[in-house]
Amino acid sequence: MLEKRYHTVAVELRGHGRSEVMPAGLYRPDHYAADIISLIETKFTREKFTLIGHSRGSNCGPCCRFPTGPGRCRCLR
């Protein structure tokens, strides 16, 4: 059903899971947002997407500015 229409990517934010541990002070929502933007721009260069965040991730979406052009991010949840 949905898996036939959507490709899901779960991102481990810095400092969580197996992600890189960063120096103190580099764990603000704008830092997380920069990581998410970098991922999108390097791995999903032409795809449209819906950004969904939970817990800490829900604070990152509003910080994301997508310079790759209008219409790529369908919505923030």
Rank of each mutant, 00 (worst) to 15 (best):
M1P: 11
L2K: 05
L2C: 02
E3M: 01
K4H: 10
K4V: 00
R5I: 00
A10W: 11
V11E: 06
E12C: 09
E12N: 14
L13Y: 13
L13V: 09
R14W: 05
H16I: 05
H16P: 01
H16Q: 11
R18Y: 11
R18V: 00
E20W: 04
V21C: 03
V21H: 10
P23W: 02
L26S: 13
R28V: 00
P29N: 05
H31R: 10
H31T: 04
A34V: 00
A34Y: 09
D35F: 03
D35W: 06
I36E: 07
I37Q: 07
S38W: 07
S38Y: 11
E41W: 06
T45F: 02
R46G: 13
R46F: 05
E47V: 01
K48V: 04
K48Y: 03
K48C: 07
K48N: 15
F49L: 15
T50P: 02
L51C: 09
G53Q: 05
G53C: 03
H54R: 04
G57P: 11
S58Q: 03
N59M: 12
N59A: 08
N59Q: 13
C60Q: 07
C63G: 00
P67D: 14
P67T: 09
T68P: 03
T68V: 00
T68W: 14
P70A: 12
R72S: 04
R72W: 08
C73R: 13
R74C: 04
R74A: 10
R74V: 07
C75L: 09
C75Q: 15
L76W: 13
